[in-house]
């Protein structure tokens, strides 16, 4: 009770402090695009990178290095979750009984699973053209596997294959960066032609990276799911 009230008071203080400090300084809905670097991204993004999706242009090309980092963060986090769950789940006794899914779910999953994979793949392959990208596509793929887990109690993934896939696509990303360095002197330089914006094969290295990210994120999230499932058994 005391703790709860302390928490509430602290949050209230924080809210009041932030709100009244910034109330006049953060005009809501103001057009701020004309300041800073966003100008360049907005007006030259398509020309510079060949990607019609501006967000992708920034995320994978202008600031591709951040994305490489974020992929690593996710990778490390997946491993970390595995480690924590592995250590926590060790003493038996918290076994939860799994209930078999109904026939409808099982049959539906069999039909929907490939479609979900395809949808995920579509999202990351078209990352440079349409909203979405590697992370989103990967998440969709992971959802497909989650679906599998839910519908089939005996289902589990082949760890080695997943690990190998994850590795290979991760290395691909890093390799693309290193190749950029070798070919042009800049790490992660877009050494492929930009092509004409709007086409599937355009925007240089972006599609390669996004495919890699998509597969990687899918595999990692599935790995996390798998870890959680295993513990509950």
């Amino acid at each position: 009770m005391i703790k709860k009230s302390i928490a509430l008071i602290l949050i209230a203080i924080l809210f009041v402090a932030i709100f009244f400090t910034l109330a006049n300084d953060l005009p809501f809905g103001d057009n701020r695009t004309t300041t800073g670097v966003s100008d360049k991204y907005i007006y030259h993004g398509v020309n510079d990178t060949g990607a019609s999706n501006l967000v992708t242009a920034i995320v994978v090309n202008y600031r591709g290095f951040d994305t490489l980092g974020e992929v690593t963060v996710l990778f490390v986090a997946a491993t970390g979750v595995g480690a924590v769950l592995y250590n926590m789940g060790r003493p038996a006794g918290k076994k939860r009984k799994k209930t078999e899914a109904s026939l409808i779910v099982r049959t539906g999953s069999r039909i929907l699973f490939p479609m979900m994979l395809l949808f995920g793949a579509y999202i990351f392959v078209h990352g440079h053209l349409t909203p979405g990208g590697g992370f989103q596509g990967g998440a969709v793929i992971a959802t497909a596997f989650l679906f599998k887990y839910v519908s089939d109690t005996r289902y589990h993934i082949d760890h080695n294959k997943f690990t190998a896939t994850e590795s290979v696509v991760g290395m691909t990303f890093a390799l693309v960066g290193i190749m950029g360095l070798l070919l042009t002197g800049y790490f992660l330089f877009n050494f492929l032609p930009n092509g004409s914006p709007g086409e599937l094969l355009s925007a240089g290295i972006i599609p390669i990276i996004y495919v890699a990210i998509g597969i990687k994120v899918g595999a990692e999230l599935t790995g996390i799911l798998d870890n959680m499932m295993e513990v509950e058994q």
Binding site: F75, S167, A174, I178
Partner: peptide, 11 residues
């Protein structure tokens, strides 16, 4: 770049 590459390679 190299550590990231190796980090992905190791598993």
């Amino acid at each position: 770049g190299i550590p990231l590459f190796m980090g992905f390679l190791i598993p």
